[in-house]
Write a protein that binds this DNA or RNA. Structure first.
Lengths: 255, 255
DNA sequence: CGCTACGTTGAGAACAATCAACCCCGGTGG
DNA sequence: CCACCGGGGTTGATTGTTCTCAACGTAGCG
């Protein structure tokens, strides 16, 4: 459904990791130098405690379109995105797909129900992730209760995001859906300290459709309508400029 | 949106609570006798520890259609349903509503983001709930870490349910939506030890529509179609018999 | 240089929404 | 006691948004 290694637009391909690596000698700890740590679950640990985390972490590299794990698999690991973009989704028997979210640097994934992954995860573009063995992570949690608090916080946050997506899927029009998505991605990019106005969309129209409960054609048509209305502008290389923010904010909630 | 006190079909109106009360003298602890405890978050505590829980709990009584809390309010309490049915939802600016779920005895509600309720909650029929002040609950959690584990488990479970609902909202047809809902309510009733074959639907068609991302008319039409196909039968007093379970299970996933 | 994935656009079909009428039933008040 | 009222549910006719099917352009990539 994705496939070829077309990853030249991966957002800062491995930068986070490489920067961390290059600073390793300086600080003696890649995690301490990790640029996404403040955004991630790892902020539940102090600089000293991080060394315990480093003992159990592996850095992995996932090519564009490659799977990270599949729904129903034994949930042996948890992950943290450090660069790139990951989609999490579920499939129906006949292949229909619902994407729950696109994960960016700092985002956590791998929450399991009864030791099985509850959804599938794939890299949208070539991405880097930190991988923690679940067994070791449990040990760490029992030693550092702050981690469990942080895990609960992350899960609650995911639930809130899921609820907003349910409102979108159940009660918004195609136009409202697309505009809401653009604004959400913009805000999240800002939160990570990346470009929030030309919004970067690493995923395909099909991904967007499977996220918004629409077909690719409807996503495409809606984009052109928004362009015609003058509220957005489609730049090259998957960047979209948000022209009339006020109007867009109104459109997202249907006025 | 609901209103009149038409609660004669509240499922065992207050039974759970009344039974608990009547056994109070016997066991000296209403929580220990609580029939929904094994289903609820309270199962994270031993019988002895329950007395600490009892010190902070209040039993409340909510009339059909009455609010429990509203989205954005200061989240001062957490709740546990002991009898009846509660709907949780969010509204858009123009009044469109998305219901995230119907909560039954044993279900927990009140999860907050930054000390504000993330959604609104109302009683579908006259219901009884246990209410815990958040401050006191936090104290209890710090004393009994098992409670935090249980809370994380409950939240993860909610997230899994939310993901299934997202698949339904984004990718299923009206018929698949209605059938999935009937099967889900049946399974949950069974889990609580209530009738799973004539399924009981305490909520209105409008509630169901706002849950499934449909209008009341479409819910109604779809029900009659299912009846015509002979896979369900509409009994009186909001009970629905599931006739052809095999067919229904197929229909829920679209074959 | 052709293949394939992706994106856009068009025409027509289909599914669900909308608008509207009607029934049933329980509550209320004359 | 009965008539009225209003909420909930069902059904019908029509509209409209989104999907489906199809064609075509473009850009990487082998």
């Amino acid at each position: 459904m994705q496939g070829k290694g077309k990853d030249f637009w991966a957002d800062s391909p491995g930068d986070a990791l490489q920067q961390a690596k290059s600073r390793e000698n300086l600080v003696g700890s890649p995690c301490a130098a990790c640029p996404v740590r403040p955004l991630s679950i790892c902020s539940g640990l102090s600089i000293d405690e991080l060394s315990d985390l480093e003992k159990i972490v592996t850095n992995i590299d996932v090519k564009a379109g490659a799977p990270i794990f599949d729904e129903g698999e034994a949930a042996t690991h948890r992950y943290n995105v450090t660069s790139g973009c990951v989609r999490i989704y579920k499939l129906l028997g006949d292949g229909r797909r619902q994407i729950f979210g696109f994960l960016f640097p700092g985002d956590f994934l791998g929450l399991a129900i009864e030791d099985e992954y509850a959804y599938s995860a794939e890299a949208v573009v070539t991405s880097h992730l930190c991988r923690f063995p679940q067994r070791d992570l449990e040990g760490l949690i029992s030693r550092y209760p702050a981690l469990e608090k942080r895990l609960l916080g992350v899960t609650k946050h995911e639930l809130a995001i899921a609820q907003d997506l349910m409102v979108l899927l159940g009660r918004k029009s195609a136009e409202e859906k697309v505009v809401t998505m653009l604004l959400t991605l913009s805000k999240r990019a800002q939160h990570r300290g990346q470009s929030e106005n030309p919004v970067f969309l690493p995923m395909t129209r099909m991904d967007l459709g499977d996220y918004l409960g629409l077909t690719t054609e409807t996503v495409s048509r809606t984009m052109t309508q928004l362009k015609t209305k003058g509220v957005i502008h489609l730049e090259r290389d998957r960047y979209i400029s948000l022209i009339d923010m006020e109007k867009l904010n109104e459109m997202a909630e249907g006025f």
